[in-house]
């Protein structure tokens, strides 16, 4: 097969190069967890085609999933009107998401484009997963400290079956303190796995169109229980040090 680009940000890599790149990212990520390039690299390398194909097929089997694949919405500060979200009533999903962005001091633009997935449609599926990641935080109320990140990954793994999310949830706890780990296993994992498995396919949610909806109603529709105890509050109570 040729090494032609299948979409603008595509970087075609093949066979052995792919392996080497995967290994490099893995070591890079362990040594420099603060460098986001390594993490996203692993994500793409481990998002094996069969897994992405399965997620894509679950989208193709669902009306909204197909609509998303057809319209290919992107989530950026341009496509999302943050001022509008700010103006929404506090109990709406949109406003919750806005508050979450504020509290975590992030913006919808902090997502990296997909480079290493060959099929253009699968690349979009992965991009979509990446861009919806913050919505998963918002709906579960989990912060982006390492501990919260692991918990969201567990939630996503249970829902999507993405190996990267799974590996993150299994391997990363070793970087936590004993106390954080216990809290993760006792409080967050049970919530994440049971909700991730039982709620509707998150990839088939057109989040952009749920902004005006009351967050409790949205959770009910998706089959998600009320969020786990606020992690930041628990951490404060424990006087834990912020990691990220």
């Amino acid at each position: 097969m040729s090494l032609l680009k299948n979409y603008p940000t595509h970087i075609p890599i093949k066979g052995i190069d792919r392996l080497i790149m995967g290994a490099a990212c893995f070591f890079g990520a362990t040594l420099h967890p603060e460098n986001n390039n390594y993490i996203t690299g692993i994500g793409e390398i481990t998002a094996f085609e069969p897994v992405l194909t399965r997620i894509r097929d679950s989208m193709l089997s669902n009306k909204v999933g197909r609509q998303i694949l057809r319209e290919r919405p992107r989530i950026t500060s341009k496509t999302l009107d943050l001022d509008y979200l700010k103006s929404l009533p506090p109990d709406t999903f949109g406003n919750t998401y806005y508050k979450w962005l504020q509290r975590e001091k992030v913006s919808p633009d902090t997502r990296v484009p997909v480079h290493y997935i060959d099929d253009e449609e699968l690349a979009y599926v992965f991009q979509r997963y990446r861009e919806c990641h913050d919505f998963h935080h918002a709906i579960s109320g989990l912060p982006i400290v390492l501990e919260g990140e692991i918990a969201v990954k567990a939630f996503e793994f249970a829902n999507f079956g993405l190996p990267f999310a799974g590996a993150g949830a299994v391997i990363s706890p070793f970087k936590l303190t004993q106390k954080q780990r216990t809290r993760l296993f006792d409080v967050y994992y049970p919530w994440c796995f049971s909700n991730g498995l039982n709620c509707k396919g998150l990839i088939n949610i057109y989040w952009e169109q749920q902004m005006e909806k009351k967050i409790d109603e949205l959770r009910r529709e998706l089959g998600i229980e009320s969020p786990p105890p606020d992690m930041r509050t628990l951490r404060k109570m424990d006087g834990a040090k912020k990691i990220t």
Partner: peptide, 15 residues
């Protein structure tokens, strides 16, 4: 309308 989209979308894949 879905078939119209999907047919075009699928058959334009390089594979």
């Amino acid at each position: 309308s879905d078939i119209k989209w999907r047919f075009e979308n699928y058959t334009s894949k390089p594979t």
